[in-house]
């Protein structure tokens, strides 16, 4: 295995494109575990942390561009991100321990392509986009379009994610992410749910995105969840309907972390609870 730490996107792309079996190293919290378990034997590891911009969080068009190597801890210390997208910040903050937070990144969480990745449902709910760079230049894609199946993404050879863009927070908008784990920390999500919504002057939901993780082969955007909320106040029957459609949308498996029945049920419970938090935030209150 070789290790390279290029200084430019172009050099990184060249290295990745030229070597089959090359892997990108940002936070490394998934990559090093796989190296250790001998699940991967890369010929080359390309550390992108020395490329300009990769560790930056910058304001852009009212939203935020987050470099691919920005760690969860750095996001958690950023007042602007916390104000605009607390659900996304909380989601990334749930990944692993304080120590893992010191290194783990949004882009890495996405590229690891685990159906249970915490930050991914939150990014999907937030309608985040990615700037992907590669041999053919750069392109912007929606987060939902990147995971392909467990462990696989739609990125082409030689491509990597350079940054994540969180759009401008809508007025009277709020987001939240909740997951279920057996302990209070250090577990992989058994179910995850991201909700982003906007309230109108009457306190009814005017727009919403509801996403689920760990209940299918990849993150899912539950359109029926948004439909259950739009035009209604986010409480009572609306939440019950939301829970029902989320449970129905879930297509989980039985595994060492949970059962089908449990995951289906809890998908609904978390959708309800996350919506309540997002609604509080949309009203400008803290939750």
């Amino acid at each position: 295995m070789r290790y390279e730490a290029p200084n430019s996107v172009e050099a990184a792309v060249d290295l990745l494109a030229a070597t089959e079996g090359a892997y990108v190293l940002a936070g490394g919290t998934d990559l090093l575990v796989k190296l250790r378990a001998e699940m991967l034997e890369p010929d080359l590891v390309v550390d992108i942390k020395r490329i300009a911009g990769m560790k930056d969080i910058t304001a852009e068009n009212g939203g935020w561009r987050i470099g691919a190597a920005v760690s969860g801890a750095e996001m958690g210390e950023h007042a602007g991100l916390l104000r605009d997208w607390p659900g996304v910040v909380e989601a990334v903050g749930l990944i692993g321990s304080t120590q893992v937070q010191g290194r783990a990144t949004l882009a890495g969480n996405l590229c690891n392509a685990s159906p249970a990745a915490d930050s991914v449902p939150a990014m999907v709910a937030a309608n985040a986009t990615l700037r992907i760079v590669g041999p053919k230049g750069s392109r912007d894609v929606a987060v939902i379009d990147v995971p392909a199946s467990p462990g696989k993404t739609t990125l082409a050879p030689g491509e990597f994610i350079a940054s994540v863009f969180l759009p401008a927070k809508p007025e009277h908008g709020g987001d939240a992410y909740l997951r279920f784990i057996p302990r209070t920390e250090m577990d992989i999500a058994v179910v995850g749910c991201g909700v982003s919504l906007v309230l109108d002057g009457a306190g009814k939901v005017s727009a919403a995105r509801v996403s689920l993780g760990a209940v299918g082969p990849k993150v899912m955007l539950v359109e029926a969840g948004a439909e259950a909320l739009i035009g209604r106040a986010p409480k009572g029957d609306a939440l019950e309907d939301l829970a029902a459609v989320c449970s129905a949308a879930a297509t989980p498996i039985d595994d060492k972390r949970g059962t089908v029945d449990f995951r289906r049920h809890v998908a609904g419970v978390l959708a309800r609870r996350a919506t309540e938090i997002a609604a509080i935030r949309a009203k400008g209150e803290t939750a």
Binding site: R183, I188, K256
Partner: peptide, 16 residues
């Protein structure tokens, strides 16, 4: 054995 690691062999952590 499906959980041969501290990730899924879940011993109590401080916050529990």
């Amino acid at each position: 054995l499906q959980n041969a690691g501290f990730l899924d062999y879940r011993i109590p952590v401080a916050s529990d």
